[in-house]
Amino acid sequence: MLNALLMFIGVSGGIVVGNAAGAFISLLGIVPRLAQISDTDSRVPLYQWILIISATMFSFIFFSEFSFKFSKYLLIILGLFFGTFVGLFASALAEVLNVIPVLSRKMEIIYYTPLLIISIVLGKVSASLLNWLVLVNYK
């Protein structure tokens, strides 16, 4: 009986978190905005299905004992693709929330906005490299 209750609570929590993530992505309009920026508006339904399938696959893989055995070289290529996606996602989020223009005006550095963007990108890249090349090896 306790296991059934715990399963119910876990599934309910997953549904709540999944709906919150879906609402977050749809309310911010990240998928349509990325499609608009990349001039691929006709592929929005494909992007939505890819997002749904990948989130579902990630959930199953994360909670199972399943693991992939890839070569280092393939992992480099996959890492570049994943990093590109996360970078685009973060950029779209920042653009939707107008983080960069607001930050530029508040700090009175409007003319240095390109440098601000470059510093954000370099910070994300260096933190990712630190995480994946150094910290992962210590676990």
Rank of each mutant, 00 (worst) to 15 (best):
W132I: 10
Q36W: 09
G10R: 05
N131D: 08
F85E: 07
L115H: 12
A92F: 01
V16N: 00
V136R: 06
I37W: 13
V96L: 04
L51P: 00
I25E: 01
W132M: 12
L115P: 01
L51V: 08
F24D: 05
Q36P: 02
D41V: 11
Q48F: 03
E65S: 14
G123C: 02
F8E: 11
L51W: 05
F24L: 14
D41N: 14
N137G: 08
F63Y: 12
L97H: 04
L115A: 13
P32V: 02
L75K: 04
N137H: 08
L2E: 15
S54V: 09
L130M: 08
R33C: 04
K72P: 06
S67V: 07
N3H: 13
L135K: 05
A92Q: 01
I120G: 04
E65K: 11
L130F: 13
I76C: 00
M107T: 15
S119N: 04
S91G: 13
Y73I: 12
P101Y: 01
G29A: 01
W49V: 11
L130V: 07
L74N: 06
L27K: 14
I117F: 01
A20P: 00
L122N: 05
F68L: 15
P114E: 02
V44S: 00
I30F: 00
S126D: 03
T40P: 00
S38E: 12
N98L: 13
W49H: 08
F63I: 09
L51T: 10
S104W: 01
L6M: 10
L80A: 13
S26M: 06
A90R: 00
A94I: 05
N3R: 11
G10V: 05
K69I: 12
F82V: 11
L80N: 07
A55H: 07
L51C: 07
S119A: 15
A4V: 10
L75Y: 03
I50S: 09
S71L: 07
L88M: 14
A21M: 14
G87L: 10
V102T: 15
R105V: 09
A23N: 11
L27I: 06
Y138G: 01
E95N: 09
S38D: 11
A20D: 02
I77E: 04
K139Q: 11
S128A: 15
S67W: 03
